[in-house]
Amino acid sequence: MSATTANRRLALRLALAAVLMFGFGFLLSPLYDVFCRVTGINGKVTRTGAVTEAVQVDAARQVRVQLIAVNNEGMPWGFRPEQHQLSVHPGEQTLIHYVAHNPTAVEMVARAVPSVAPAEAASYVQKVNCFCFEAQTLAGSASQRMPLVLMIDPQLPAHIETITLSYTLFDITADQVGHQSAPQQPSARRVSL
């Protein structure tokens, strides 16, 4: 094997390694999601859907649940939970409502993104029924009560006494329109009033 061939072969292998690492960079995104689901490090609530197994209600224990509503930038809607705080027994299913109101004259689409603090509690919060991550459309001046059924897993570590559940409301009207017409120009985002 001549030196030139050896060099070429090594260069190709190293280039292949570089390409694989580029792929690995993208792989980090789903890996991170898996990692978050296992450890709950970023407070994303991943448990949704009906409770399939029989869960024993722990009537002896009370967990304080705080509800928070946040509007992301430029979101003019009124958005709040009907009650800010409640006390629940782990294992029981609780129905709560958030209220949204669109004060503008036009139809708008929003999406609510949930987050839990402390993050380690996130994997013990099960949303049996939830409006989160769904596009919510509200006509101008319309209001809506949005139901949420949640259950706290009785396995919740004993040192956690309070769980905060927050919903951040994002305005996705432009994205919804953008799918039909031309993609949104990011350069226009900051310059126009």
Partner: peptide, 18 residues
């Protein structure tokens, strides 16, 4: 009135109504 109260989505202009 509308832009001050409701802001302009996608820009730095916030909804000051709240």
């Amino acid at each position: 009135l509308d832009i001050v109260i409701n802001g302009k989505p996608g820009t730095a202009m916030q909804a000051f109504g709240k």
